[in-house]
């Protein structure tokens, strides 16, 4: 676990992400029922739980895609509950999606440039007149996009449409896109789903390198091996309720967790289908 940034550096008091008593009801179904946890700079935190436990719903609440029916989400002390997803992204919160949401018809490089949208310095007139500022910002964007694709170890064609890449490569592109936003906090929704053993090892390494950049990571993951190896802390959900929060060791021994998991499924990488999602 070397290289984890242990000096947050900023003076901001309190955690980077603070989720307080989050609730989300879908017409009577309690998808999230009183979730509280916090993440700090450099953290690697995993949210685990059986299928339908409300993990993705919680992610969607944090990133603004669902409006929570109760509770608060704070980013660096600022209340972002119910804000637009783009406004939350502007606070340095980036994410990937459970079932890959790349811009399939666009090039791989363009996909990564999406993450740079907020930071690119050019306006419509620069674009119409191709001013030096325009060229500069385009060049920088391309360089940086290539940098992030190198960072995630993409091997495939970068100039072609993203949908042409194999699945594992597409996952990398999605992470590169999320990183290009320059996030303080990165939420990954099942990054290991559908990856083979070798790819999972590479993912483990990638997650550690991301953390070393100082970006806090929160992941939803079913692969227990990966979760136990990479996480500093683990939050366990079951039926929308939080049943444990602690280090991997603590969670492993927690009787409530054992019951929730061993009670019905030992299978570690089942595809999760969340409650109402669409």
């Amino acid at each position: 676990m070397a290289g984890v940034a242990d000096a947050p550096g900023t003076l901001s008091a309190g955690p980077l992400l603070d989720v307080q008593d989050l609730h989300l009801d879908f017409g009577g179904i309690k998808a999230v029922d009183g979730l509280s946890f916090s993440a700090h700079d450099g953290d690697i935190l995993s949210v685990i739980g059986p299928n339908g436990a409300g993990k993705t719903s919680a992610f969607n609440c944090i990133t603004g895609f669902y409006k929570p029916t109760g509770g608060k989400v704070l980013v660096e002390g600022n209340d972002i509950t119910g804000a637009r997803p783009s406004a939350i992204a502007a606070r340095g919160v980036s994410r990937t999606f459970q079932n890959l949401r790349l811009f399939g018809e666009l090039t791989v490089l363009d996909n990564v440039r999406a993450g740079m949208h907020m930071r690119m310095k050019q306006n419509a007139f620069d674009a119409l007149l191709h001013t030096p500022r325009f060229r500069r910002s385009e060049r920088q964007a391309t360089e940086e996009a290539n940098h992030w694709l190198d960072f995630v170890g993409l091997r495939g064609d970068r100039g072609g449409p993203a949908r042409n890449l194999p699945y594992g490569e597409q996952r990398r592109v999605e992470i590169a896109r999320a990183l290009a936003l320059g996030p303080r906090l990165l939420l990954l929704d099942e990054p290991a789903a559908g990856l083979n053993h070798g790819e999972k090892l590479e993912l483990l390494d990638l997650l550690r390198r991301i953390s070393a950049l100082g970006t806090a990571l929160v992941l939803i993951e079913h692969d227990m091996g990966l979760v136990m190896q990479v996480s500093r802390r683990i939050v366990v959900l079951n039926f929308g309720k939080q049943i444990a929060d602690g280090t991997p060791e603590e969670v492993r021994r927690n009787p409530a967790v054992l019951e929730a998991y061993l009670g019905k499924d030992e299978e570690s990488h089942a595809d999760e289908t969340e409650v109402p999602h669409d």
Partner: peptide, 12 residues
């Protein structure tokens, strides 16, 4: 291509 993904990238 994908309005949600765009929004997640900070695009209003």
């Amino acid at each position: 291509e994908d309005e949600d993904a765009a929004e997640a990238m900070g695009i209003h």
